[in-house]
Amino acid sequence: MKNLSRNQPLLGTCVEIDISAEVAEHEIIALSNLAFGEIRRIQALMSFHDPESELSRINREAHLHPVEISDDMEFVLQFARLLSDLTKGAYDISVVPELMAQGGLPALYEPHAQTGNWRDIRLSKGRVFFSRELKIDLGGIAKGYAVDAAFEILAVAMPDLDKLVINAGGDLRMQQWHGETVQIRSPDPRTRGEFSKVDMLAPAMATSAPHYAGNASLIVNRQAGCLEKSGDSISVFAPSCMIADTLTKAVFLYDAPASILARFGASGLRLTQGGDEMRVAA
């Protein structure tokens, strides 16, 4: 069996790919290259920071005219819109003015009094149109989607891998997840180096903690008009990494998270700064 473990700085974090397969060395390298290439492709589409990305073009033009978008973008925007609908707007990818004001995103756009929200994102026949001026950020969804995309491209290229784990800074997906464990970091900055070991409950999981890494993980609660202030972390186990990634935010922001988790076949775990583990339940 050949094992290969690589780690590259992508998606604003460190992306780790572990592969084991009964193949020649050059083949396992080619598989890892394929996965990193797919992650780079998604990054090039969905980066807020890159003025050349598809997302940046949408942010510049979609309030002026319908913008043709990739299948990947359409899928991600459809899911974001569905989750906004289900959470009555608690989850909203249009919180860019708040994130720019707080330093969570670079101030690429003029500060604007944005009146639009997720309801103004109109999707139709491979195009997106904003019915009011709007800027969107995919920071809480694209990483999970990129992990899924890379995972699925490898699953097609080599269906009988002995092991496959893709971990994008804590948003992770595994091929053989039954009986596996995962180590969740303490959400307390003072004990950041400590881990809580829990069983893997689904193929994918992700963790968010608003207080964890300074501005990088701000969660905006637009309805309350403030930043999420909880010192806890939320981990979500889900069938896909995109679902896990987005639902961590929905659990923080929506007051009935258990119903949302159940709808997507997901489950949630809250870790408090004191080290308590609590299932997210109704």
């Binding site: 974090t13 971990n167 804590g170 180590q183 969740i184 303490s186």
Partner: peptide, 16 residues
Amino acid sequence: QVKNISGATLSCRHIT
């Protein structure tokens, strides 16, 4: 002993 780490995203700013 410590594998499959999850936690809020680590920044790669220092690598950049």
